[in-house]
Design a protein around this nucleic acid. Structure first.
Length: 489
RNA sequence: GGCGCAUUCGUCUAGCGGCCUAGGACGCGUCCCUCUCAAGGACGAGACCACCGGUUCGAAUCCGGUAUGCGCUACCA
């Protein structure tokens, strides 16, 4: 029987989840869902010094927002728990004891100061930096002496001095490492916590992970992990290392590249489906043309074989474009619901809160295809909500239009509008379009003046729809205001 | 410095020996549509497939070297 796929996403709670980590989580998740496997979330909080309060909750929120659900892990439990490494310390210590007992690992009493001096000297002499294995073959008496001095040792893996270790990677193929360059890495730190390497191997085994899918930066330590699996007598999982995500300057994506935390994207008004789709395309592709895909499509088509090996630069421009695509795909209801918080927050203070939902529902369809970020919605719709328009009166004067001509056109339009009974877009167009001809004006000249009068802007949604939403009273008042402005010019 | 990996339009990518005078997308430009802005449509500019050799009747695709970039080289993950 074929083993059921089990993968895990194992973030450290050292701060916000950034898009690189999310991409890793996404590929893990897509692969798992594609194969009908189990996706496990594990919190790797083994660095007590870097732990950030509240980070775990934030990670969970972000994953939930994106729809990356986990089958085992914090809050949902599972039979291989606990899923937080700081609660599994005894298991790592037990593994360490076993390794030391069988001679595969040893206590190292070297101080961090000594290691630093050693490294500095090695670098100075242009030698490869690394631990010199001083404690590897300590005599029993020497060890007893160190213990008596009260030094708490770290435990290091005794790696083979010769031979080679091959990593079979689904994405990279076979990569061979000489054992001689593999260090005696620390397994258990002096504070009793395991290092990533130990905790990872022990947990992946205990949780029966079948596929270790993680970022490329782990490639180099994978041979060590294999050695560890072997020493512990564990079966080796399959590995797949994902290419890195880079910033515009080709360096590892980080804070200085602008928004990188998934929360920031959320606050800017990116949709989760955009993030999923876009991130899926960074290092993976379906074919030579398909780009916009639903999450279901991605699950259906995802395969590690089509993941590339080259690092990708995160392009905000394309992300924005794609978000526009997804915003346009939203139903009017969804768009309104999702925009509402942005409006409440982004509209000027003088606008009365709470906003009228029914009015918001009328306004938003007019800007849906014009927004690329939800955050742009308040700015795009502001004049629908404010009482007083603020604009440069010069804008009232369109191309080839004098102030006199504009006043005249607006007056006539106003008179007709006052008599207008049905104030819907179609009726308004039926009335106003012929009026332009009647006044011997181009449609653009009449409509342009009205557009500015009614919105204070030169770029807006279609005039008649806008007037219909604004309503008769407001439309007329704004035309009056425009006429007053023109009188003062 | 050492080890590993990578290198196709500015960017994301297709390509796995002949279909490639290299395809798609973002961005950019022009035009169409049009009451403006978007959206949509059409067209275009943009890649000597990093470079140099080799294998082959034939190479972006295979091999070797060089260059460049990236990752790792912590009692961080």
């Amino acid at each position: 029987m074929i083993q059921r796929v089990r993968t895990r996403f194992a973030p450290s709670p050292t701060g916000f989840l950034h898009v690189g980590s999310i991409r890793t989580a996404l590929f893990d998740w897509l692969f798992t869902r594609h194969n009908g496997g189990a996706f496990i979330l594990r919190i790797e909080d083994t660095d007590a010094t870097r732990k950030v309060g509240g980070a775990v909750g934030a990670i969970l929120d972000d994953l939930r927002w994106l729809g990356l659900d986990w089958d085992e892990g914090p809050e949902v439990g599972g039979k291989y728990g606990p899923y937080i490494q700081s609660q599994r310390l005894e298991m790592y210590r037990e593994a360490t004891r076993r390794l030391v007992a069988q001679g595969a690992a040893y206590n190292c009493y070297c101080s961090q100061e000594r290691l630093e001096v050693l490294r500095a000297e090695q670098i100075k002499n242009k030698r490869p930096p690394g631990y010199d294995r001083r404690c590897r073959n300590l005599a029993e008496a020497e060890r007893a002496q160190k213990e008596k001095e009260g030094i708490t040792p770290v435990v290091r893996l005794k790696t083979p001095l010769e031979g080679q270790t091959t990593v079979h990677d689904i994405i990279w193929g076979d990569v061979v490492f000489k054992n001689s360059i593999i260090e005696d890495l620390v397994l258990l730190k002096s504070d009793g916590y395991p290092t990533y390497h130990l905790a990872n191997v022990v947990d992946d085994h205990d949780m029966q992970i079948t596929h270790v899918i993680r970022a490329e930066e782990w490639m180099s330590s994978t041979p060590c992990h294999i050695l560890l699996y072997n020493a512990l007598g564990y079966e080796i999982p399959k590995f797949a290392h994902l290419p890195m995500l880079l910033g515009k300057d080709r360096s590892k994506l980080g804070k200085r590249h602008g928004s990188v935390s998934i929360l920031q994207f959320r606050e800017l008004g990116y949709l989760p489906e955009t993030m999923i789709n876009f991130l899926a395309l960074l290092g993976w592709s379906l074919d030579d043309k398909t780009e916009v895909m639903t999450c279901e499509d991605l699950v259906k088509n995802f395969s590690l074989e089509r993941v590339s090996k080259t690092a990708a630069i995160f392009d905000h421009e394309k992300l924005k474009w794609m978000n526009g695509v997804y915003i346009r795909k939203l139903s009017h209801d969804d768009f309104a619901r999702q925009s509402l918080p942005f409006l409440e927050k982004g509209l000027p203070n003088e606008v009365k809160r709470p906003l009228s939902i029914s009015y918001v529902r009328q306004v938003l369809p007019l800007v849906q295809e014009r927004a690329r970020l939800l955050m742009e919605v308040p700015e795009l719709t502001e004049y629908f909500f404010t009482d007083q328009l603020n604009y440069d009166s010069q804008l009232l004067l369109g191309k080839d239009m004098t102030a006199e001509l504009t006043v005249w056109a607006l007056r006539v339009a106003k008179e007709r509008l006052e008599k207008q009974v049905s104030f819907d877009a179609a009726s308004l167009e039926l009335m106003l379009r012929p009026l332009a001809g009647e006044l011997k004006l181009k449609a653009g000249q009449l409509f342009g003046a009205l557009r500015t009068a009614v919105s204070g802007r030169t770029a807006t949604p279609p005039l008649f729809q806008m007037m219909a939403v604004l309503g008769k009273e407001c439309t007329l008042a704004r035309i009056d205001d425009a006429l007053r402005r023109l009188a003062g010019m």
